[in-house]
Design a protein around this nucleic acid. Structure first.
Lengths: 132, 132
DNA sequence: CTTTGTGCAAATTCTTTGCACCAAA
DNA sequence: TTTGGTGCAAAGAATTTGCACAAAG
């Protein structure tokens, strides 16, 4: 049965075949995919899907707090369906993006003069696999 | 006299008229400019300057550690001549980017399983001016 | 029926590339 | 005289826009 539909509704997002599929993709592929990767991953399942819809939908998810925009990759926008606050690490060699648990509270306190709404922590370096 | 030339040499960067002007621009305009803004700001001073050279040079500066890439603006790459580790805050309304002093050491310690080389902290919200 | 969502094609924008010329070591 | 730097024009790639049709409330 379809709990993705209910999940989306919880964010105030009207479900549609496309939106459900895209959210399902995000939740089952924790790879921080680009819009293109989402499109490629779903075009067999939904042959009529367009890239425009993927772009629209991912933007919608971010606007409604159902996904996180990940700006760690200078070439493409990436998206994360895992919305608990966390940092991201990207390997400079293989490009792999790793979720890093991180408590944002302590960070926000250092900035009293502005009203911080969103926090993005991007770490770059070499991952374990590439180090060997 | 020209200490920018010596400054660049300190990073292992051969000075040229263009490189000196671009670094001077970065150091005197702490606005985290885009490549285009740097180009626009210098084209009167150096009428023969090309955008290609600005792109090449900014990339070179980042590669040699003479400037920081600022990925807080989803539309454009931005650059910072202030290379002490610090965080960035961007106002969602006016787009103003503010430097935030921040000690990165404590952050890196939370990620033992990977080798972090670069840390980027981006904060977004509403600045004081826009709050009023 | 009236608003919202989708998708095609075209446009836009930022950035990179190929190449020829110029400058410096 | 060889390597490195600049700049033009063109290409490339990611994303957005305009618009017509489809779907849902």
């Amino acid at each position: 049965m379809d709990n993705t539909s209910i999940y989306l509704a919880g964010f105030g997002i009207r479900p549609s075949v496309q939106r459900i599929a895209i959210m399902r993709y995000l939740l089952s592929h924790r790879t921080h995919p680009t819009a293109d990767e989402v499109f490629e991953g779903l075009k067999t399942e939904i042959p009529t899907l367009s890239k425009t819809t993927v772009y629209n939908t991912l933007k919608l998810f971010v606007d409604y707090g159902a996904a996180i925009y990940v700006g760690i990759d200078e070439k493409n926008a990436r998206f994360d369906g895992f919305i608990e606050p966390h940092a991201h690490f990207r390997c400079k060699k293989c490009g792999y993006i790793l979720d890093i648990p991180f408590n944002f509270k302590e960070l926000i306190s250092v900035v009293p003069e502005v009203e911080v709404e969103d926090t993005f922590i991007y770490l770059k370096g070499i991952c374990q696999k590439c180090k060997k």
